[in-house]
Simulated assay, not measured.
Amino acid sequence: MLILEVLSKSTKDFDREDKFRFYRSIPEFCEYVLVNQSEFLVAQYIKTESNEWLFREYEGETATVSFASLGVQMSMSEIYAKVVFETSETEVQ
């Protein structure tokens, strides 16, 4: 029903395109959520009753993500709990 993935810099394009195309062949699959690892950013694709895919994007620490297939909501601060984002200073060290 739901597939949730954390995007890495090296695989994010593959996850959004080829992998998503493969997942769509699964009849029960109806929600795909991609969590960006370097900022408060979540992309969500929800399959509608007419078999079309609806895209939603959530951005910022105060946004709330609604997981349609589960009937659950989570704030971005909950999703990113204990995540420390790299800054340019962190990357240099």
Rank of each mutant, 00 (worst) to 15 (best):
M1A: 12
M1W: 07
L2I: 07
L2F: 03
I3D: 06
L4N: 09
V6D: 02
V6C: 14
L7N: 06
L7K: 08
S10M: 11
T11E: 12
K12G: 01
K12A: 06
D13R: 09
F14N: 12
E17S: 15
D18S: 13
R21P: 00
F22Q: 12
Y23R: 07
Y23C: 04
R24S: 10
S25K: 15
S25H: 13
P27T: 04
P27V: 06
E28D: 14
Y32T: 03
V33W: 00
V35R: 06
V35D: 10
E39V: 04
E39R: 12
L41F: 14
V42L: 04
V42R: 05
E49P: 03
E49H: 12
S50G: 09
N51Y: 10
N51E: 15
N51R: 09
R56V: 06
E57V: 10
Y58R: 02
E59K: 11
G60N: 10
G60W: 10
T62E: 15
A63L: 03
V65K: 00
S66F: 14
F67E: 01
F67S: 00
F67Y: 11
A68D: 08
S69W: 00
S69E: 06
L70Y: 05
G71V: 02
G71K: 02
V72L: 11
M74I: 00
M74G: 01
M76P: 09
M76V: 04
I79F: 08
I79R: 01
I79H: 07
Y80C: 08
V83W: 02
F85G: 01
F85E: 01
E86Y: 10
S88Q: 12
S88M: 12
S88V: 08
E89D: 15
T90C: 01
T90D: 13
E91I: 15
E91W: 03
V92T: 14
Q93P: 04
